[in-house]
Nucleic acid binder design. Sequence first.
DNA 1: ACCTGAACACCGTTCAAGT
DNA 2: ACCTGAACACCGTTCAAGT
Lengths: 219, 219
Amino acid sequence: MPQPSARRGRPPRISRAEIIEAARRIVEEDEGVDRLTMRRLAGEVGSTPMALYHHVRDKEELLVLLMDAVAEEAQRRPELPADPRERVIVLATAIRASLVERPWAVELPAADDLMSVSALWYSERIVGALVECGLTTERAVHAYRAIWYYTVGELTVRTASARRRERDDRPTYRDRVFTELDPGELPTLASLAGRWTELTARDTYQDGLRALVDGLTRG
Amino acid sequence: MPQPSARRGRPPRISRAEIIEAARRIVEEDEGVDRLTMRRLAGEVGSTPMALYHHVRDKEELLVLLMDAVAEEAQRRPELPADPRERVIVLATAIRASLVERPWAVELPAADDLMSVSALWYSERIVGALVECGLTTERAVHAYRAIWYYTVGELTVRTASARRRERDDRPTYRDRVFTELDPGELPTLASLAGRWTELTARDTYQDGLRALVDGLTRG
DNA sequence: ACCTGAACACCGTTCAAGT
DNA sequence: ACCTGAACACCGTTCAAGT
């Protein structure tokens, strides 16, 4: 029997795994996907940009692979309470916590759904818990998605503000807008002007989540 | 009296308004902010890239200005029902509808908040309606934000899927994942495998929104 | 089979000079 | 004051060639 064809030709100098590992390092240390360029990545693995294209189809595929790798490793699976409603809260909060630590991942094509296989562990349990709450499977899926929307939105807004804050110290556009509010037109907001920033800085993810889950399961 | 200093020097060939107008055209016709480059924009106004920098500080400022311009014009202010809870639904749905029509705007730095002054018309009325529902102003602001998170999330996921769909016809990564689910590990999801795409394609924005608002106001 | 170098077709932005 | 041209320091990706 001949050796499989994989054994022929020039031996590889870099591997797919090595590339993804280096990509993770760049993105984690520099906190941002925009910092991950093919050229920089090639440098990191001690090769040329074009060598990478022999291991991944294009940058997009690289990002998907990266997302998967990170999801697999980021599993700090929480203790699950018996009460299904509380379980939903715990699960969603855990997903969100692990994404708060990886703000760069929020921008990834991930946004469609928790797509990587390992992350489906969470989806499974959330949908399951919602069914235990009395929803039909169909409604449970929709409820799961609502929770996912809420979570993605909170993360998007959170990371967008964080990025803006770290970039410039000058008052944000929003702050400027709020100081010039016309109390005749916008009485409620004008009365809050001074406190808006403080109010919106507070972390209310769980409060909103609880309200949402209540609404979804009591409806 | 001498003329104000604005009257001196070479007369301008292009104006800020003209630039923003052209930017809006590009972004609206080509459906995407990434298509808006300084060079392309310069071409559109019949000038050079560098001339733009005389009217806007950098590309970021341009995007903020663009967002404002669009928000101002996109006001199809809805009829408001008397019932405050229903009013919140109508307002949020209207915001979302106008963003669904402008998918490119979802990526904008807008994400922090509805920041442009004209868009605050909505914020004012949502917070107001929530106060009418019996919330303190403070809780009303947090509730408003929860609604905003949910809306941003839905839009983010929606536009991300749309972009992916139009790019490649091959089955999405998610579809592939779902066909290979291990029913031992993920029984609920595996039982849904065939229907997942259909279930998640359905527009359930309003259902989720109603649940959220219920939870926020009944809590 | 795997890697390289040179090149293509782009970016945003700076700088010095023109009118 | 407003605009231009050339240039800098980048991108992702293709292509033809090397080992």
